[in-house]
């Protein structure tokens, strides 16, 4: 598995797209830092970016990579290598290279501006962490969808739809149900509902760092009480890990059964 991971990783590291992706973050972060020169403001703008771009790029990249390396995969399948290690290796290669691009692209400019040791270090660590987790989650989902669908167009469409669902539609449905059920006590419902979406969960973890003032209000108190404690944080991180583990496990299962 590690050999395949290594191949995929090196393959991707050499790929033009990885460089473009990494270069984009590098340029974007640098220009933000250069324009505002205020670490905290840049962290806030990047937090909005991470929730949108990381999942989107991970989804696209995951599907694209799977379909593009299909011939290589078939070649590998002919060899005495375990299926799970082929697919997991490839998946980890994609997720790893995406995360590396993200961490380098954002981390280097911040390190140059001296984020370590500043009071923004905690927020920055949270930013990097959510970026990495979202990359892992969404490339896994993309891989799973690609494995399920031989048809490339359909696969792409479904992957984009999955991203759209988690990024936009889910929130819309949640807002709709909240406003329809407004007579009922909804704090717990909204809390659980937001745990079920990795993007929402990451967003709330970030909110707890940024919009503390708003969350101190009556309704926010529920979230703060839950997620502000060590226990709540542990659950939030646990659920995020689950969001990585679940698609990976599905990949393993589907890959084991699939007829090539």
């Amino acid at each position: 598995m590690f050999k395949i991971l290594k191949y995929s990783f090196y393959d991707l590291i050499r790929s033009r797209w990885t460089y473009i992706y990494c270069g984009f973050y590098l340029l974007f972060t640098l220009s933000l830092l250069w324009l505002s020169n205020d670490l905290s403001k840049v962290v806030i703008s990047l937090m909005n970016v991470v929730l949108l771009l990381c999942p989107l790029i991970a989804t696209m990249f995951g599907v694209m990579y799977y379909y593009n390396s299909r011939e290589f995969t078939e070649l590998l399948l002919a060899q005495p290598v375990r299926r799970t290690s082929i697919f997991l290796g490839q998946y980890l290669g994609v997720a790893g290279s995406l995360s590396a691009s993200w961490v380098i692209g954002v981390g280097v400019p911040f390190a140059l501006y001296g984020v370590f040791g500043s009071e923004q270090a905690g927020n920055f660590a949270m930013l990097l962490f959510t970026g990495v987790v979202l990359s892992f989650v969404f490339s896994a989902i993309a891989f799973f969808i690609a494995l399920k669908n031989e048809n490339r167009i359909k696969g792409f469409g479904l992957a984009i739809l999955a991203w759209l669902f988690f990024a936009v539609i889910y929130d819309g449905l949640l807002l709709l149900s909240l406003s329809l059920l407004t007579e009922y006590p909804l704090e717990k419902f909204s809390l659980i509902a937001s745990l079920l979406n990795p993007i929402d969960l990451s967003r709330i973890l970030i909110l707890l760092k940024l919009d503390v003032s708003a969350l101190m209000g009556f309704t926010g108190a529920v979230f703060r009480k839950f997620l502000g404690t060590g226990f709540g944080m542990a659950i939030a991180f646990g659920v995020l890990m689950l969001w990585v583990a679940m698609p990976v496990w599905s990949i393993k299962r589907v890959a084991g059964r699939k007829d090539f």
Binding site: V168, D171, L175, L178, T182, L186, S190, D200, L207, F218
Partner: peptide, 15 residues
């Protein structure tokens, strides 16, 4: 202000 619980969606893309 109508549905206080929807605060959970603050800063989401949909919003």
């Amino acid at each position: 202000s109508n549905t206080p619980e929807s605060l959970v969606l603050l800063r989401s893309l949909f919003v």
